[in-house]
Design a protein around this nucleic acid. Structure first.
Lengths: 132, 132
DNA sequence: CAATTAACCCACCTATTTAGTAGGTAGAAA
DNA sequence: TTTCTACCTACTAAATAGGTGGGTTAATTG
């Protein structure tokens, strides 16, 4: 599976924040309920989005999360790369994989590379706005 | 990871068989050595390729595996689907996934579908001959 | 100030998948 | 009948997925 629930959920939460952004800070409890996904699980994913500057979180009553920028400023690629780590379709292409000794003569490597580029280009061409 | 070693190895073995097909039946021991992959592991993957009619295996001395058809008759898609089972990029799209109750209103579903179609089309357009 | 709300943090857990290995049996050829 | 090779079953170690529990810290409100 290229994309796990982690990335899929993050995307759905980002979309929910985009959709309701005029309402200010939204508590995760509300978002998780609306999106029907585990609050506890989401609480573990959100800090990554904060750290990357995608969303802002504020504590306490009336707090919650808010999109920092406009929906069209976020590509699906950025969100998935952040939460999934790497979208490489094969292990050979992951960042930090030990370099394959057969790379020179590998008959399939360029195919995997092409696929990888295609996938990245696909996701880079879609913003949150496109999905609203 | 969309494609695991299982599918990648199968593809490499099929390519090896294609490359050396004029030499008749090739023992897996030889192929595995040349491709630098575990013989025992490959022995567990080959029966699937036999069952699908992609290769023929014969026992005993002088035996081994042989491609049944011409290299250009095998698409990468067929080989990967057979060995990996399903190339769905997200769990929602796997054959036999319980139907998602949110499918109607899901903002991302059509994106996943497009990606899936794109990936399948990509692999369907590449044959063993193209990789030789 | 105290209670409430909500982000955030850390340790743990269960099930599944991955990538094999061990130890054979069955069949074909020399 | 020995040798080679496909093929089969059971097992295993490590990683990943998808969480849960039990808190602490920070901000608002009565």
């Amino acid at each position: 599976m290229l994309i796990s629930t982690r990335g899929r959920y993050a995307l759905r939460v980002m979309l929910d924040l985009a959709e309701n952004r005029e309402r200010g800070y939204l508590p995760m409890k509300e978002v998780a309920e609306r999106q029907e996904l585990s609050l506890k699980y989401m609480e573990r994913i959100m800090p990554a989005l904060v750290k990357a500057g995608f969303v802002e979180g504020i504590h306490g009553k009336g707090g919650g999360y808010r999109l920092v920028g406009e929906p069209k400023e976020y590509t699906v690629l950025e969100i998935l790369q952040l939460t999934e780590g790497d979208l490489a379709p094969v292990a050979c292409l992951t960042q930090g994989a030990e370099p394959c000794s057969r790379a020179e003569r590998c008959r399939t490597l360029s195919m995997w590379n092409k696929l990888y580029e295609m996938v990245k280009k696909f996701f880079a061409g879609i913003t949150l706005e496109d999905l609203l």
